[in-house]
Write a protein that binds this DNA or RNA. Structure first.
Lengths: 211, 211
DNA sequence: AGATATCCGTGCAAAATTTCACAAATATTG
DNA sequence: CAATATTTGTGAAATTTTGCACGGATATCT
């Protein structure tokens, strides 16, 4: 299938389009042209049409795209017509904030289990309802609850071992907040959310702009 | 100035190299070849050499790179030989977690001020020491404290107005956690940290892998 | 209804990025 | 010290990604 032929950046942009379209739908905009959508996203209009062309024809020439229809199609393509089950490892400041983040649910992502190594934390119940499990139970809990995405919010030093746990429990997708490059087997999907890398980009920009 | 000729991805990779090198330095590794470093970063070795070549010659043929020296040079290039002053808008779960995140300080980033619109929060002091300011004082506080990077951790609906505040206070770099495309004038640097876009990538990957 | 305007889908060219492959420099071995 | 082994820096090729520009389809206006 086409899977491997579609650039990762295209998928990232689809996600951005879907967000823009959601806003437009809320504003009760019915139809939008690629030019207008492009402007909102800060992207070239031809790029949008190209991205969509990988998956089919969703627009009407001389008219544009029906907002709701296109939104639906993009969500279908991305696989957002279901709720994805996530498990979190690392109940620190960041972990807590993530679990409490109500955006996830709205977007179709749900934390069905949380884990920590700290015996003092294990057994406690979070405000959002989840009981903190021991890491040793990860394999079992992941299988019981049907976890599909593993989220790692541990310190860098513990991230790789958390990843191994998820891998051996059969989880195929990881969202990693630890500032480290995870080693994973072929076929795993790993996405890194890395504040400091982004900050470094800003620092560089500021430094260059000065000189 | 070469600034505009250097790809953004190169800067991102430099940041990743610096992290790997820091680990190596801690492990007391003195010298490393581009092949080994590449393996650690999951990047092509020629890519590393090309990236570095934009800025000079840092290696020794037949030998490799001195870990500490290369680390120092990369940090200098990125502008990390100083502490950058940040201000945060939005003291929700995420905002609190960010301020508490001790990694930032270690990496040379410091929150010197925090803001929120909620009158109930304004005036309170965070565990990390900062007093929560009113948004109306942003301009003044930013100038007093010499804020260089604005961090936006508000809901999407408030993010653009927070950005405007920073912009008119003269801040030239923004780190945006809100799931929205900020509109900013020419010359501003904006980096988005976007969990849901990353999750959407994972969802797509999992969906494709099934079929 | 014909003329004009809008806007999608897409072939193709341009630009950007990655990767290869090798000369040049350094180190090591016999 | 010559021969062999490493490993960088880099020109050139290969690949990927972006953007232009236009045919074709739809709508609107006179």
């Amino acid at each position: 299938m086409k899977f491997s032929k579609i650039p990762a950046v295209t998928i990232t942009r689809l996600s951005i389009y879907s967000r823009c379209l959601e806003t437009l739908a809320q504003e009760d905009v019915k139809i939008i042209a690629s030019d207008k959508l492009a402007q909102k996203c800060g992207i070239n209009p031809a790029q949008i049409r190209k991205d969509l062309a990988y998956f089919g024809e969703f627009g009407i020439r001389g008219v544009g795209y029906f907002v709701k229809e296109l939104l639906f199609e993009i969500k279908r393509i991305l696989g957002l017509n279901k709720t994805w089950k996530m498990a979190l490892v690392g109940i620190g400041n960041l972990g807590l904030a993530l679990v409490a983040h109500e955006n996830f649910i709205r977007q179709g992502y749900e934390f069905v289990a949380v884990f920590d190594v700290d015996p003092a934390k294990v057994g406690r119940r979070l405000p959002s309802g989840q009981v903190i499990h021991n890491m040793d139970d990860l394999d079992q809990v992941v299988k019981e609850k049907g976890v599909e995405i593993g989220v790692i919010a541990t310190p860098a030093s513990k991230a790789q071992s958390a990843a191994y746990r998820f891998i051996s429990a059969g989880v195929k997708a990881l969202l990693n907040f630890a500032p480290i490059q995870l080693q994973v087997p072929e076929g795993m999907a790993v996405e890194n959310v890395d504040f400091t890398v982004k900050l470094d980009n800003l620092a560089y920009h500021l430094t260059m702009a000065e000189s």
